[in-house]
Design a protein around this nucleic acid. Structure first.
Ligand SMILES: [Mn+2]
Length: 562
DNA sequence: ACCTAGCACCCATAA
DNA sequence: CGGAATGGGG
DNA sequence: TTATGGGTGCTACCCCATTCC
């Protein structure tokens, strides 16, 4: 804790955010000359000509919620005269005070007590909820007005930032996504996020074509539309959208279709959902298509599609789901099926039943089991996916951070941008082979240990550093034979997206015997998930030690009424 | 990869 | 008043 | 009773102030 405080109190330059933004603009300007739109070039040029205070204010604003701001709410030590700083921005029209505010915008800008005062004549009362006052006023007067018409008798000013879209576009071009913000810079400066240093040359950039930037933004608009409000029939027009030439964007488009299907399904528009699922190649879309056909009562179609699918399953996960649906669909057609005994007999044999006394304070089954088994000579860790993912991330560090074309293009990446694409492993084949070979010749131990030291704290999408201690790592390397690591990593490499998850909750070590065992803990009512079952089957098939422990509580609840 | 994914928890339904 | 939710900040 | 599907909630840097109910 004190360490964290020490880090976060290191003083940064008072205009740190402005310097970061200037650097980002420079970066973009250097790499995107051919793609930048005229107004973007104009903006970059115009920005550099502004007085420092105005630049600083502008950057402060684009990092805040917006698009409306109240002058009185803009208080910064490093910008003593906000009004003066705003003048050049107002003159350029980057900030506007001559725009009307809708009622909703006004309500976003002012707190309830203020609105009660303003709208008391129309019947607003302090006892009402803010939403009730809004409803009241909507009934009376909904037309947008200028700020000084809404709020008379006030020295307050309201400004609207007009370059939000443009700045979002620049941010997208820099990061290649919209979830990262300009605050990445300061978080990295403060040591809150530490990124691997990947060599980036002047040609590294997220987008190769201006059109792709637009496509990304369009998809994002659709996504917000789908998430924020009920989906209309008109959205089916997405079915006619052209295929994207860019693989990465085409994948995003397919995912968008899948999300639209989910939204339709959730709101009960099964027929729309079915059409969209049928058009999407996103993993899982076919399964949802079959399920929705079933829900629609079209079991004939559902069965036909399921039978076609099981001939050529897209993944073990889909195969698993299909195997569960098929008997039901067959029965619906009057075709009898023998009642299938538990999912897989080999997994049933892994079962172990324990009655435990839940210590105070109450623990989850995973922690209770760990507590029950843990001892100095047989330590137990609650690791879930984190252990094997971390070992994977450390062993294959060089492969993950290899500076391949298109993989890295800004200094704040926890992994390559093309992680998710079908040819990800193929493109790095030789590097992954190198890691696997290290398992053969024994050098993997040193490789993993030294990277644990060297790379500690650096963001890696496979390594969760707070879960991985030196103790845990030492025990894992002592107790888990390299043959097992190889088996696990091989399966992961088949499909990194899907096979990163589903590992058992606990791992028990017996360092003196150099042995270990993984254990999936199950509370009553909890059941194995598909990805867990698939790993269990794999472990059984390769003699990797694993159990499923079903825990019941010995003394249910005596101290419950408190 | 913070409107996203992985996990556990809780409930409804059907054989 | 308590306490959740949101926004701003380094 | 079991099996299945579905929905929800938590958690992700951490601290602080404001807002709202
Ligand atoms: Mn579990």
């Amino acid at each position: 804790m004190s360490m964290d405080n020490a880090i976060s109190t290191i003083p940064v330059h008072k205009y740190y955010y402005l310097h970061n933004f200037q650097n980002a603009l420079q970066w973009i300007n250097d790499r995107y000359q051919d793609i930048l739109q005229p107004e973007e070039t104009e903006f970059i040029e115009g920005f550099s000509c502004l007085p420092v205070m105005s630049q600083a204010l502008f950057v402060r604003l684009i990092m805040r919620k917006g698009p409306w701001f109240r002058y009185s709410k803009l208080v910064y030590d490093e910008i003593p005269d906000v009004l003066a700083a705003a003048q050049p921005l107002l003159a350029l029209g980057w900030l506007r005070e001559d725009k009307p505010l809708s009622l909703e915008e006004l309500f976003g800008l002012y707190a309830k007590p203020e609105l009660v005062t303003v709208f008391a004549p129309q019947g607003a009362r302090a006892s009402m909820r803010k939403s009730e006052i809004l409803a009241l006023m909507s009934a009376v007067d909904t037309a947008p007005q200028y700020h000084n018409e809404w709020i008379t008798d006030s020295t307050e000013r309201a400004w609207k930032i007009d370059l939000g879209q443009l700045c979002t576009r620049l941010r997208l071009m820099f990061f290649g996504n919209l979830y990262q913000t300009w605050s990445e810079f300061v978080l990295a400066d403060l040591g809150i996020f530490n990124y691997e240093a990947v060599a980036l040359d002047a040609s590294c950039r997220a987008f190769q074509q201006g059109h792709d930037v637009d496509t990304y933004l369009e998809i994002n608009v659709w996504r917000e539309l789908i998430n924020d409000a009920p989906c209309l029939e008109e959205y089916l027009e997405l079915l006619n959208a052209p295929v994207c030439g860019n693989h990465w964007l085409e994948g995003r488009r397919q995912k968008l279709l899948y999300c639209l299907g989910q939204a339709y399904e959730k709101q009960g528009d099964l027929s729309f959902a079915q059409q969209v699922y049928a058009a999407s190649t996103y993993p899982g879309a076919r399964h949802r298509n079959i399920r929705v056909l079933e829900k629609l009562g079209d079991c004939t179609q559902a069965l036909a599609l399921a039978q076609r699918a099981i001939e050529n399953p897209e993944s073990p996960d889909e195969k698993q789901k299909l195997a569960r649906m098929l008997p039901r669909l067959l029965r619906s057609q009057g075709i009898p099926t023998q009642r299938r005994k538990a999912i897989c007999p080999s997994i049933a044999e892994l079962s172990l039943h324990l009655e435990l006394l839940n210590p105070e304070p109450l623990l989850s089954v995973e922690f209770a089991l760990r507590h029950h088994w843990h001892s100095e000579h047989s330590p137990v860790f609650y690791v879930e996916n984190s252990l094997f993912n971390a070992l994977f991330g450390l062993l294959f560090w060089d492969a993950l951070f290899a500076p391949l074309q298109g993989a890295f293009f800004h200094p704040f990446q926890a992994g390559p941008a093309d992680f998710g694409s079908a040819d990800f492993v193929q493109r790095r084949h030789a590097l992954f082979e190198k890691g696997l070979n290290a398992l053969e010749d024994g050098s993997y131990q040193h490789m993993i240990q030294s990277r644990f030291i060297e790379k500690k704290g650096l963001l890696n999408l496979f390594v969760f550093w707070n879960h991985l201690t030196q103790d845990l790592l030492d025990l894992a390397l002592i107790c888990i034979p390299p043959q097992h690591l190889r088996l696990v990593f091989s399966r992961m490499l088949c499909d990194l997206k899907q096979h990163r998850t589903g590992f058992p909750d606990l791992i028990r070590f017996w360092p003196e015997q150099q042995s270990y065992e993984m254990v999936e803990a199950k509370a009553p009512g909890d059941k194995l998930q598909d990805n867990q079952i698939l790993w269990l089957e794999y472990f059984v098939a390769h003699n990797i030690p694993v159990k499923v422990c079903h825990v019941t509580w010995l003394k249910p609840l005596a101290t419950e009424i408190a």
